[in-house]
Each structure stands twice: as structure tokens, then as C-alpha cells.
Design a protein around this nucleic acid. Structure first.
Lengths: 183, 183
DNA sequence: CGATGCATGTAATAAGTTACATGATTCC
DNA sequence: GGAATCATGTAACTTATTACATGCATCG
């Protein structure tokens, strides 16, 4: 089977969170907000918006406020189908293979009381905990004594950094989940 | 100009750190050690090793210990040219655009007293500090009041998480640099 | 009036993934 | 003897980047 594409879902998520967006505005979102998690160039975005419109996920809307200006961008909104597709994608459980989608999916959950929020955080906590255990195991195996540390110091540093990063992630997720459950 | 490729330098770095490696062993390294920073499939690795050999960066070595076994992988070592190419790549300063290369480059610095270590950490500290300031500025602009937080809660969470992650990174780098300077 | 930003699109090229293909070895 | 792992390679396809291309608007 072909690899699951992510770009269309990101476009759905971005447009949904902002009610309507133009291709150019989507470019700005990529640059300003989600450059840490994903990148896309305008030559990817514009044809993709076309395809998604053809597939009935999006519909172009002409904003009446556009008076007479020659400059008027094409704004897109989600169709009912598009909304359903986005929701299904957001609800798909995270796996080890799809773990990099976590920040994206979280980004698109607008409501603090979304029923998708808690499971998403729990899934990521599970994956991060597993990852942390894996890294700690690796440290034991690859760097049993100081000799190995001295011979591959950079590797050692990236591994210890990875462990700290994952610990920090687990802390954040745990605290956030505690706050959610309290209310 | 075409985009700078990274895969060849990773192969150089991996082989260099292990003195010699086969394509299969490189696959294992990708899977076990650097999957957080980079991925590559065997269909990328094998032709790349060929190209690099043709370019004079690598040389295949036949390990004499291979007795009579029919199973013998092709091990590669760096040529003098390959060593120079790797060193030049490692010494290239990090920029905002190439920041994702930091963990890779760090990974390949085997000696704790490598003259490349301190500048690399300093460059990353600079980039992380800038990134942290950018994220904090974004938080001010995008989420001035609680109303915006409530309307885009997921976005808010990813932003606060990004700030924490970057802070944690800065702490780690600062502490490490302090330890290095002490000795 | 020139630079930057807004706004959209296509074409050529490069890179990466999946599938196809083969064969030996080792462990159970 | 069957499954998993070792070991390498190519072909077909998908995805992404860079370059090419155009034109208006705004600011200084």
C-alpha cells in the first residue's frame, strides 16, 4: 500500500482552525507556526488545494467584502466531507510509526474540551515512555563503562540528550493530563 | 543551486566512527541509533555507497578473517578524501536553515577533546536561544488574553510545549558548555 | 520608480519509498 | 524444514524542491 500522505490533513486542519484560508495564508502558517513539525512549499500547497477541491474536501469561497480590488485571493473552507475526513484522521490512534503526527494533531484541536484531547495525550505519553525506556536500555548496552563514552563521546551526548528530552516530554504530558483530570 | 544532500555525510560519519561498516550494518545504525534524526532505506544506502566509492570517498575492504564463508558483506572505509570531506562538513557552521544537522554532527564527534565540539555547541546554543525568543514573542502576539487560548487550545499547548522544549535544550547546552570550559 | 510583499500557478529535477528480486545462514 | 535474519541490488512510483513565470499592491 502507498504511504499515507500527511499534507492534505494539515491543510484541512489549518483551514478548519481558521474557518477559511487562502493558499498564501497557509504558506504563512507553515512558516510561522508549524515549521517545527512540517514544511511545505507553495508549489506543493496550491496543486494540493486544487486536488482537495476536486475530491470534494474543500470549497472555494469568494468573500463579498472584496469590493473592487484586483487583488483577491482564493479562500477555501471545509466541506462536510472535509470535516469528517479531518475528524477521522485526528481520531486515528498514534503508533510508533506515526508518532511524529502528535504535535500536528494537537495543534488542530481547538476546543479545550475536545473528546480527542485526552486520548491523544495518553497515546503520546505511552509512546514517549516506551521511547524513554528504549533509550535507557541503549545507554546500558552501548555505554557500559567510561571507555566506550570516551571512544564515542558525541554518540554518548546525543543519547543522554535524547533521554533528557524524552523525560522532559513525559513530565509535560503527565502534568497536563493531571490538570485535565482535575477539572 | 541544488539542495545540499545530507545522506552521503551521514554515511561518512557512521563509517568513520566504526572504522569500517557494511551496507547492512549502516541500516542497523539508522534503525537503532539515529532514527530520531534521520531515516534511510536500504535502497538508498546501497547505491549511495556505490556512488561514493566511484567519487573516491570510500574504498571497499575485504576482511581477511572471512575464511571460506559464502556470506561476506562488503565493508567500506573512508579514503583520505573521504576523511577531508567529512571534516569539512562537520566544520561548516550551523545556520537556522541547517539547524536540524546539529544532533547528527554531534553524534559523529568521537573525541571529547575535538576542537569542533565547543563551536558546534555554541552555535546550537545561539540558534536555540533565538528560537526560544521567537517562540516567546509568538506567545505574546498570538495569545494575548485567555480568549485566544480557549479558541485555539491545541495551538496554545504546542506553543507552550515548544517553549519548554527549547528552554530545556538551552539548559542542557549551557550546562554542557560550562562543564567543557571548567576543564 | 524600485524593492518588498501579496498572490498563484507550472515545469524540471531531485530525493525518497515501496515493491520486486535473489540467495545464503542461523535458530528452533 | 520453516521462519527470521543476513546481505545486496534494481525498478517503478510517489513526493518534494528548485526554478521558471507572471502580475498587482504598497511603501519609501
Amino acid at each position: 500500500m502507498p504511504k499515507k500522505r500527511t499534507l492534505p490533513y494539515i491543510l484541512l486542519g489549518l483551514i478548519n482552525s481558521n474557518h477559511q484560508l487562502s493558499g498564501y495564508q497557509i504558506m504563512q502558517e507553515f512558516k510561522n507556526e508549524i515549521s517545527d513539525f512540517w514544511t511545505a512549499s507553495h508549489s506543493q500547497i496550491y496543486p494540493e488545494l486544487q486536488r482537495m477541491t476536486d475530491d470534494g474536501w474543500l470549497t472555494p469561497v469568494t468573500l463579498s467584502s472584496n469590493s473592487d480590488s484586483k487583488r483577491n485571493p482564493i479562500y477555501y473552507q471545509l466541506t462536510t466531507t472535509g470535516q469528517a475526513v479531518l475528524h477521522d484522521w485526528l481520531a486515528e490512534p498514534l503508533t510508533t510509526a506515526s508518532a511524529e503526527l502528535f504535535p500536528l494533531k494537537l495543534f488542530f484541536l481547538d476546543q479545550p474540551d475536545s473528546p480527542l484531547l485526552k486520548p491523544l495525550l495518553q497515546q503520546q505519553l505511552q509512546l514517549s515512555t516506551e521511547r524513554l525506556e528504549y533509550l535507557k536500555g541503549r545507554q546500558q548496552i552501548v555505554f557500559p563503562t567510561d571507555a566506550e563514552v570516551q571512544a564515542h563521546y558525541g554518540h554518548y551526548l546525543t543519547l543522554t540528550r535524547g533521554i533528557q528530552r524524552e523525560r522532559n516530554y513525559v513530565s509535560w504530558l503527565t502534568e497536563l493530563l493531571n490538570n485535565l483530570t482535575e477539572n
